[in-house]
Computed example of a mutant assay.
Amino acid sequence: MWSEAVQYLVEAAGRRADWMRNALRFAWQLMRRSTWAMLTAPKKGATWQHLAADLGLSERTVANLYAWFIKAGLLARAVPGTTVRYRKGTRHGLDDDG
């Protein structure tokens, strides 16, 4: 099961106990805020601000957890970049790129 793989990789990272606890809580929150197609949904609160507030962590810690999960192969970016307003080729958000 996916959660067992996440738990194994988090424990194998050799980090402190509080980091492991936060990483597993972060993974659970991402799973709760994902669509059936396993895409995180900002409408469900899968933003750095919401995750940081719900987990009681800083946005920097959430960013580090995202980076670690991507590096570990547990997350992938469907659309690289930032918000539509700042992404290249969208005329500053006037064109929605999907």
Rank of each mutant, 00 (worst) to 15 (best):
D96C: 15
S34N: 09
R32C: 06
T40F: 01
E11W: 09
A53N: 02
T82K: 07
Q49S: 03
R91H: 14
L55Y: 04
N22P: 04
N64A: 11
R16F: 05
T35Y: 05
K44P: 01
A12R: 15
V62H: 00
R87N: 06
T47P: 03
A27P: 02
L24T: 05
A27V: 03
A13V: 10
E59Y: 01
V79H: 12
K71C: 03
G89Y: 08
R87H: 11
L39W: 08
K88T: 06
W19D: 12
N22R: 09
L75E: 06
H92W: 14
A67Y: 04
M38K: 14
A17R: 15
A17L: 14
T47H: 04
K44C: 02
G56F: 00
A63Q: 07
R25Q: 05
Q49M: 00
R15E: 15
T83S: 13
T83I: 10
L94S: 12
A23S: 12
L94A: 15
S34F: 11
R60M: 04
V62N: 00
Q29A: 08
G56T: 00
R32L: 11
W36Q: 11
R16D: 13
A76G: 11
N64P: 02
R85C: 05
G93C: 11
V6Q: 07
D95M: 14
K44I: 01
V79I: 15
A37N: 10
Y86C: 03
H92T: 08
T90D: 05
W68E: 09
R25V: 01
A17S: 14
A52M: 06
L65E: 05
F69I: 02
W19I: 04
A76F: 09
A67S: 14
K43I: 04
L30W: 00
T40V: 09
G45C: 08
G73D: 03
L9A: 13
A17F: 07
L75R: 07
L9D: 06
G89A: 09
G89W: 09
F69N: 01
G73V: 04
R85W: 08
Y66G: 01
L74R: 03
G14P: 09
R21E: 14
D97Y: 07
L51M: 04
R77L: 15
